[in-house]
Each structure stands twice: as structure tokens, then as C-alpha cells.
């Protein structure tokens, strides 16, 4: 199976690899997946609490090229959006942008889950209630 140009580009030059201070109140962390399943994503957002805008996003991913590309692209999309906008990012948008084949759709689902987990982590830290998300059930 050949990888799309965009997947290769994100894999070769991943955007926003790194770690934010997870103890900070401004930072939301989402850790999803499992080593046994062959992919683990950690996605972090830093939010400006006055405006709700995501000022920074970082990721680290254990997984295949498509998983790395999905999380790299997700961090790019997150920066500059408000957390309310970020919630609407759909895994199929990632699939389309990266031209992921059907067997790799679960990578995009994981990235969407990571975004939502990071947002909820931020919300809980700031005294807001967790948002309920419906299961995608693709994995």
C-alpha cells in the first residue's frame, strides 16, 4: 500500500511534536489508544482562557505513518481555533485531507478522540463539565 504525499510529508516533517506542561490549568491533555493496539496518541492544547482560543497544540504519537500524520495535521488545525470550533473537527475531514485508505480510518478516529479528550481535560481543570461525545465505533 502506498502512502499519500500528504501522509509522507507529515511523517517526514511532523508539525508540533512536543510536550506542554500538563499541570498547567491552561493546558488540556488527551491520551488515547493503547500500546497493545499499536497506536497511542497524546495531544495537548494550550488555551487562552479569556478568548477560548487554542494558542498552541503539541502531539506525540506511537503508531504507523497515518497515525502520526493524523495527529500532526490535527495540531495544525487546532491552533488558532476556539475550543468550541475544535470540537467540531470530524475524523472524516482528516481522512479526506490525508487521503487515508479504509484500513487507516481508525487513525483519524483516534485523532478525533484525542482532540475531544484534550478539550474535556481542559474543561474539567477549569471547573466546566465534561462534554459527552458519541462513540464513533469504527475501531
Amino acid at each position: 500500500m502506498a502512502y499519500s504525499e500528504k501522509v509522507i510529508d507529515h511523517y517526514t516533517n511532523p508539525k508540533n511534536v512536543g510536550t506542554l506542561d500538563k499541570s498547567s490549568k491552561k493546558v488540556g491533555t488527551g491520551l488515547v489508544g493503547a500500546p497493545e493496539c499499536g497506536d497511542v496518541m497524546r495531544l495537548q492544547i494550550e488555551v487562552d482562557d479569556a478568548t477560548g482560543v487554542i494558542t498552541d497544540a503539541k502531539f506525540k504519537t506511537f503508531g504507523c505513518g497515518s497515525a502520526i500524520a493524523s495527529s500532526s495535521l490535527a495540531t495544525e488545525w487546532l491552533k488558532g481555533r476556539t475550543i468550541d470550533e475544535a470540537v467540531t473537527i470530524d475524523n472524516m475531514d482528516l481522512v479526506e485531507e490525508l487521503n487515508l485508505p479504509p484500513v487507516k480510518i481508525h487513525c483519524s478516529v483516534l485523532a478525533e478522540d484525542a482532540i475531544k479528550a484534550a478539550i474535556n481535560d481542559y474543561r474539567v481543570k477549569n471547573g466546566l463539565e465534561e462534554l459527552a461525545f458519541e462513540e464513533k465505533g469504527v475501531h
Partner: peptide, 11 residues
């Protein structure tokens, strides 16, 4: 350990 095989192959 701690790197995934397919991701590794892609390199």
C-alpha cells in the same frame, strides 16, 4: 520498544 513497526518501516 516504544516505536511501532509500520511507522518504523515508513522511515
Amino acid at each position: 520498544k516504544h516505536v511501532e513497526g509500520e511507522g518504523l518501516l515508513m522511515g
